[in-house]
Computed example of a mutant assay.
Amino acid sequence: MTDTSPRKVLITGGTGMIGTRLAEMLIDSGFEVALLSREPARSNHYHSFRWDVDAGTIDEAAIPYADYIVSLAGASVADGKWTDERKREIMTSRLGGLALLARELAKPGHHVQAVISASAVGIYGDAGDKLVTEETPPALPTQDFLADVSHQWELAAAPIAALGIRTVIPRIGVVLSTDGGALPQIARPVKLGAGAALGSGRQYMSWIHLDDLCRLFIAMLEDPAWHGTYNAVAPYPATNQAFTEVLAEVLHRPLILPKVPAFGLKLAMGEMSEIVLASQNVSAKKVLAQGFTFEYPELRGALGALYGAE
Rank of each mutant, 00 (worst) to 15 (best):
A127N: 11
A127I: 05
A127T: 02
G128P: 02
G128W: 04
G128K: 07
D129R: 11
D129S: 15
K130Q: 11
K130T: 10
K130A: 09
L131I: 14
L131P: 04
L131H: 02
L131T: 08
V132Y: 02
V132M: 03
V132D: 01
V132A: 01
T133A: 10
T133K: 09
T133M: 12
T133I: 11
E134Q: 12
E135Y: 10
T136Q: 06
T136S: 10
P137V: 07
P137T: 01
P137K: 00
P138E: 05
P138Q: 02
A139S: 03
A139I: 06
A139T: 05
A139F: 01
A139P: 01
L140A: 14
L140N: 15
L140M: 05
L140H: 10
P141F: 04
T142Y: 08
T142D: 13
T142L: 08
Q143C: 00
Q143D: 11
Q143N: 12
Q143R: 08
D144C: 02
D144V: 03
D144Q: 07
F145K: 02
F145L: 09
L146F: 09
L146G: 08
A147R: 04
A147F: 13
D148Y: 12
D148G: 13
D148T: 06
D148A: 15
V149G: 07
V149W: 02
V149K: 04
S150T: 13
H151Y: 15
H151T: 15
H151N: 15
Q152S: 14
Q152V: 06
Q152T: 08
Q152W: 09
Q152Y: 10
W153D: 00
W153N: 10
E154I: 07
E154A: 01
L155C: 12
L155K: 15
A156R: 12
A156S: 15
A156T: 09
A156F: 12
A157D: 08
A157G: 10
A157F: 06
A157Q: 08
A157R: 05
A157Y: 01
A157W: 01
A158K: 14
A158G: 01
A158C: 07
P159T: 00
P159E: 03
P159N: 06
P159I: 07
I160M: 13
I160Q: 07
I160W: 10
